[in-house]
Design a protein around this nucleic acid. Structure first.
Length: 554
RNA sequence: GUCCCCAUCGUCUAGCCUGGUCUAGGACUCCAGAUUUUCGAUCUGGCAACACGGGUUCAAAUCCCGUUGGGGACGCCA
């Protein structure tokens, strides 16, 4: 077979991601896209986005939009694609019919392919017979042995048919895979597979090869479920007279049960993780580590780090289980590295989704050392750190954001690493923004269940009502003085207070919480907490529990 | 059924090509201690793996063969 002289390996490496718009962008696809993108960027090559929508039944515009959204969110930008164009378009297979038809006709003319008039039932029967006799499930190639004249006659008579590749039957096909090394398959295992369906549409293997060749793709990086497609495609490249690209097969991403990741394993679409508050850079980083490692030690990488560190040589071969827990950990690592402004930007969409923004209430902060830090000299610093917010976003949030920002800054500072990312907003700082607090039953059970607790909360509320300047420092002295006067430990006041104020057993230092919540809210919540204790006791002592101080009903 | 791929802690992995430095390293999770007004965070420490069987070799996680296990493909889906 002659080599087409016009197709020469082009200088800039060209890689592609070729999703079919039949569903959302799932993590496996995103990882494939990422690796292709990384290689392209690292080698200063071109990243092409091609849409494989030849399956008219299942392809939808909605899926296409979702995939593009996902790619954009992850920051995987493409140089050529359906929306941006390029020199080798169109980039949507449904618009490339003429190309496939021309190539199919050429193969037919040159004898590398033939028309097959067998019905689906015929082929099915053949496979069954093959399975029984212990061989590979193959089409037997009978139409390939038809007299050319006979074939033409039936074709011209308008008989339904497909086009099949004439597969050589001797020897084996071998290639060097960038991640697996030498791979080979006996040609006898392969059959004359379909190139063009009876409706005239190309099959995946045919369209992919034609497009990769025409689009001058130099490296094909894909999941290892495509290993068995590779020999077929290699034969096709040969028949078409095109130089094949380099292949790199990636280990699959699987669920905890080691089977291919699917909905049944939980969230798998990247947009679902976005909506759950995962940062794109964390997603990217985590995905990169699924099947690739740098030196076995370093795990946190920025996008730019990945570009410089990534190498197909370090891609592994064993399937990787998708571990959401580690993804969340990774999210925390990236979140911690953000500036205040970037954090706010990452937090706002999530806070909106949770009904925590715009704030339903704000605290009246008494000027104190804490507040001075924010409103005083460092104003400029905050203004500077907020810059990542776009003009538009700033304007949209103008009234509340500007007013709330100093407090939010203090909240984030005091919450510190307890907040590992936007995905934790509700439990970690929700109580600062809504009175609709979710009480942790365990916390209530432990600290809001005794008559003493109710009494302490009321005493504390009364004491704090008197504190002159309302600052963390004065609050602390007041609380400790109260504890001492009552002959109790400070912790006995602090624990119930925390639950009353936040509903949780985890929170920043209690004095910061009191301060940031403001006096009005704090006192109200302490008193509500006392009421909860009472209700709680009524409930739990009702079933005639004899013990304790439950007064017998007349 | 046929073919292909894979096999290190529960999980992600380093080490394997170029056998000894591996009583197998890092990370997530978990546990313990320190710290803390509590939790968290943090620090310190800990649990935990070379699938099995044969070879080759002075020496094997590393090389070879086999077994077992898992996965994938075999479609007019991609």
């Amino acid at each position: 077979m002659h080599k087409n002289p016009q197709i020469v390996r082009t200088t800039p490496p060209r890689l592609r991601f070729a999703p079919s718009p039949t569903g959302h962008l799932h993590v496996g696809g995103a990882r494939t896209a990422l690796y292709n993108w990384l290689v392209a960027r690292k080698l200063n090559g071109v990243f092409v986005l091609r849409i494989e929508d030849t399956d008219a039944e299942r392809s939808t515009d909605e899926s296409l939009r979702g995939i593009l959204d996902g790619m954009r969110w992850l920051g995987l930008d493409w140089d050529e694609g359906p929306d941006v164009g390029g020199d080798f378009g169109p980039y949507q297979q449904t618009r490339r019919h003429v190309v496939y038809r021309a190539e199919a006709e050429r193969l037919l003319r040159e004898g590398h392919a033939y028309r097959c008039f067998c019905s689906r039932e015929d082929v099915e029967a053949m496979r069954e017979r093959a399975a029984e006799s212990g061989g590979a499930l193959r089409y037997d190639g009978r139409c390939g042995r038809l007299e050319p004249r006979e074939s033409t006659r039936r074709f011209e008579a308008g008989e339904a048919h497909v086009v099949r590749l004439r597969m050589p039957q001797d020897g084996k096909i071998t290639w060097s895979d960038a991640t697996r090394g030498e791979l080979s398959v006996d040609l006898q295992q392969l059959d004359d597979f379909v190139l063009v369906k009876s409706d005239g549409n190309p099959t995946y293997n045919f369209a992919a090869v034609v497009d990769d060749a025409k689009m001058r793709i130099t490296h094909v990086v894909r999941g290892d479920d495509h290993i068995s497609n590779t020999p077929k495609q290699l034969v096709l490249y040969q028949a078409l007279g095109f130089a094949p690209p380099e292949f790199a097969h990636l280990p699959m991403i699987v669920g905890p049960d080691k089977s291919r990741l699917s909905k049944r394993h939980g969230a798998t679409s990247v947009t679902a993780f976005r909506d759950a508050g995962i940062l794109p850079q964390a997603m990217l980083n985590y995905l990169a580590l699924l099947g690739w490692s740098y030196d076995g030690k370093r795990e946190v990488f920025s996008k730019a780090d990945l570009v410089s560190c990534f190498d197909l040589k370090n891609v592994g071969r064993t399937a990787a289980v998708f571990d959401v827990q580690k993804l969340y950990w990774m999210n925390g690592e990236h979140f911690a590295q953000l500036s205040f402004g970037e954090k706010v930007r990452a937090l706002l969409p999530q806070m909106r989704a949770q009904g925590l923004w715009p704030p339903k209430f704000r605290a009246e902060l008494t000027p104190g050392p804490h507040l001075r830090v924010v409103t005083g000299s460092s104003d400029a610093k905050i203004a500077g750190s907020i810059q990542p917010l776009s003009e538009e976003e700033w304007m949209r949030e103008e009234p509340s954001l500007a007013e709330e920002l100093p407090r939010l800054k203090l909240i984030l500072d005091t919450v510190g690493k307890r907040l590992s990312g936007p995905h934790e907003i509700a439990p970690i700082l929700g109580y600062f923004y809504t009175d609709d607090i979710a009480f942790d039953p365990e916390a209530v059970d432990k600290h809001l269940s005794s008559a003493e607790a109710a009494e302490r909360l009321r005493a504390l509320a009364d004491a704090l009502a008197q504190v002159k300047p309302y600052t963390p420092e004065t609050l602390e002295t007041a609380l400790r003085a109260l504890a001492e006067a009552r002959g109790e430990k400070a912790a006995q006041l602090i624990h119930p207070a925390r639950v009353a104020l936040t509903g949780a057993k985890v929170s920043p230092g209690i004095f910061d919480v009191l301060y940031l919540l403001g006096r009005t809210k704090s006192l109200a919540r302490l008193r509500t907490g006392a009421d909860i204790v009472v209700q709680n006791r009524k409930l739990t002592s009702r079933p005639g529990a004899p013990g304790g101080d439950a007064t017998p009903t007349p």
